[in-house]
């Protein structure tokens, strides 16, 4: 287990390094942050001062080495825009994104699994067909459009829920959470639904496919022949076996939601990391972009690790040392 963890960490470090290099080169190729950040009033002397002050006068390789040196000491640089440590900016906004992502993922599991199970066990019923048709909508409607429609219907027309923002928050252990107040929770509902529609559909489809396949397997037939109750057959034998693909996909989706819920966060003015990264890309705020992607890589490594460990719990045949 330790060797396995160590190996994973080394892999992660390699990916982070490659990522930082790519971002550096990419941002360099796109354009000059100073051209975007500088006031149009600035004259040539002020422009040169700004370039020096942001360390952009050095050759690219030297900028990169300076960055690496500082990163090894835990300093990922300061945002050009906010003049604050990039890492702190990101961590400040992480709770907002995390609670949204958790809300969406939990909704996906709570709604998706039962519906998928039902559709898998009774594939020919009208309800199942309706569920499957609905899931196609969940897949294919663009998040952007659905988000705006949710706002139009539930906030503007019906006035049931607030349209945007995060609402009241409660500070717990120095971190602000909004799911602890009714006001905060009501602000969360629409964006969480918007994020979870796709995931619900995904879970429904995976579960249904898994169930339909498992129901034909010998062990299910055997369990039935043994005279086990249908409930026990479904919820113990079938359920456990279909969970592995579901856990894998939900895990990856969870990571994706944290990292790239840019569209939903922009539409709902949700002050999370997705909004930060898109704003930073627009003004070529390189320190934030690099730090963000590094945080994301680490997060995916951790999520994949958790997924792998979950496998061993679900399926005793899986051994961590054997893979990797």
């Amino acid at each position: 287990m330790t060797v396995y963890l160590l190996r994973r960490l080394i892999q992660a470090a390699g990916v982070v390094l490659a990522m930082s290099l790519l971002v550096f080169l990419g941002v360099y190729a796109i354009g000059d942050p100073v051209e975007i950040l500088i006031s149009p009033d600035a004259d040539q002397i002020e422009r040169e001062r700004a370039i020096r002050s942001l360390g952009l006068d050095l050759p690219l390789w030297e900028q990169y080495l300076v960055f690496l040196g500082k990163a090894l000491q835990g300093d990922l640089g300061r945002s050009f825009v906010f003049n604050e440590p990039a890492l702190r900016l990101i961590l400040d906004r992480m709770p907002a994104t995390l609670e949204l992502a958790v809300g969406a993922t939990v909704a996906a599991i709570i709604i998706g699994l039962p519906l998928g199970l039902y559709a898998g066990l009774r594939p020919d019923s009208a309800v199942s067909k309706a569920i499957m048709a609905g899931s196609i909508l969940g897949f294919s409607l663009p998040t952007f459009w659905v988000g705006l429609m949710l706002i139009m219907v539930f906030a503007v027309q019906l006035g049931w829920l607030p349209s945007t923002g995060r609402g009241e928050t409660v500070e717990v252990l120095g971190v602000r959470w909004s799911f602890l107040t009714w006001n905060g929770l009501s602000h969360m509902i629409l964006p969480a639904i918007n994020l979870s529609l796709f995931k619900i559909s995904l879970v429904i489809r995976l579960t249904r496919a898994g169930v339909r396949e498992a129901m034909l397997m010998d062990y299910v037939k055997f369990a039935r022949a043994k005279g086990l109750s249908p409930n026990r057959v479904v919820f113990v034998h079938v359920f456990k076996n279909i969970l592995i693909p579901v856990v894998t996909v939900v895990g990856l989706e969870f990571g994706g939601t944290i990292a790239f819920s840019v569209v939903t966060e922009s539409i709902f003015a949700w002050p999370g990391m997705g909004k930060l990264i898109i704003d930073s890309i627009n003004v070529l705020d390189r320190p934030v972009m690099v730090a963000y992607l590094m945080v994301i890589v680490l997060m995916f490594v951790v999520i994949n690790l958790v997924v792998d460990i979950t496998y061993t719990v679900l399926d005793p045949r899986v051994r961590l040392e054997g893979k990797a």
Binding site: I151, A155, V156, G159, S163, T164, S266, I267, K275
Partner: peptide, 14 residues
Amino acid sequence: TNDAARTAALLAGD
């Protein structure tokens, strides 16, 4: 920052 969301927030009274 999103134009449509800003207008919607005004119409919704937020």
